[in-house]
Design a protein around this nucleic acid. Structure first.
Lengths: 206, 206
DNA sequence: CGCCGAAGTGGCACGACGTGCCAATAAGGC
DNA sequence: GCCTTATTGGCACGTCGTGCCACTTCGGCG
């Protein structure tokens, strides 16, 4: 279905991710304020001009890391069994996306904690979630019968995204480990349940 | 209690608001991208250097207008009868803040619609709500008995803020009037009810 | 094999952004 | 009146982000 990305596209994505790692290391070390775009570029082995072809704003360089979880969430939700009620599918995919499986996911979650503490990166964080909410809205709509009230779908996407955002922020500013009590999964499940419990969408789509 | 602001402070706030109006007019006319900070400054009768003493980022110039409703909300909530259950107080103050009373409020809501359509201003919009969520968290905490679970309070603030944000965005991109069906009040009440219905905080604080 | 178009990269120049610094000015207290 | 304090404007500077053009790389095709 989804035509696999071309070779060049995958190389581009790899470069993107490598720049993101470099930027994250520099940002975590000195703070985003004190790092210039040129430094990130040179440390990544590319020119300044090329850096701005990958990211239009300096701070966005870490977006691929911050957005990784959300991407995975949407993907898991899309792939979940079609028979599953929307609400179950949403909760399960969220929980799974918060349980880092491969090394890349573990790494991304590790960086997230450091990056969230930098106020200069608040904007990227918000942008990432606005983007996530939008994507989620799309895939939820795909699961609902045509004609379903669009506002209800939007509210579901907003509630779910807000839940995960709050859970991650809460975790990042605590000293809880990434698994067990106080972990993103646990907080995420709790926030998600509370914020989505009152939605009428669940009644509309059985 | 709250010592009234000094004369100088009020002059400062007035200047701030006037710059905001000037910036909003320019942004709405040409888009934030095409307006330089220097233009806003000169059109406001101040120097560029002074402009940056009022707003550290060009786009923030319109923040006072976008934040006006949220400020009012928090204020109304604080002033609401102490006997009222938190949930009622929150819903009523939100509804009232979405029903523009004085001219300034009407004007702010009018600008909001234009400004929300400019993608370049998304960041300010998000920042304004992050700020609103924070303030709300504070005043809700003041109403709850000490020792109340902080996460529950945070979730309530996040849910309420998200509700209002979604309602305003939905309204701004529709052609609904600012009163009557499809109005911010109506959408706000509906979003608020759905997003806060599942919160455990209401059970915790009676 | 060599040619070729498409895509990616680097260098350069430029306007705009945002800040540190210092001098000039205005406001408020004694 | 004077003095202290806050606010303002001007200037210089480093950084940001983009338009433009020349150069390289790479996969396809005769």
């Amino acid at each position: 279905m989804t035509g696999r990305p071309t070779l060049n596209q995958r190389r581009r994505d790899a470069t993107r991710l490598e720049i993101a790692r470099t930027a994250a290391a520099l940002f975590a070390e000195r703070g985003a304020e004190a790092v210039t775009a040129e430094e990130i570029a040179l440390a990544s082995g590319i020119s300044l001009r090329t850096f701005y072809r990958y990211f239009s704003v300096k701070e966005d360089a870490v977006a691929p890391l911050l957005a990784a979880g959300g991407r995975r969430w949407v993907q898991l939700f899309e792939e979940s069994a079609a028979g599953l009620p929307v609400r179950e599918a949403l909760e399960r995919s969220a929980a799974e996306s918060l349980t880092p499986a491969d090394d890349a996911a573990i790494e991304a979650m590790h960086w997230t904690r450091d990056l969230l503490r930098d106020p200069r990166l608040d904007d990227v964080w918000q942008r990432v979630h606005a983007d996530s909410e939008e994507r989620l809205r799309g895939v939820i709509a795909d699961r609902c019968p045509p004609g379903t009230d669009q506002l209800e779908i939007r509210l579901a996407a907003a509630a779910a995204t807000t839940a995960i955002r709050v859970a991650l922020e809460e975790w990042a500013f605590s000293d809880a480990p990434s698994a067990g009590p106080g972990s993103p999964q646990e907080l995420g499940a709790r926030c998600m349940r509370e914020l989505t419990a009152g939605l009428r969408l669940w009644a509309l789509v059985s």
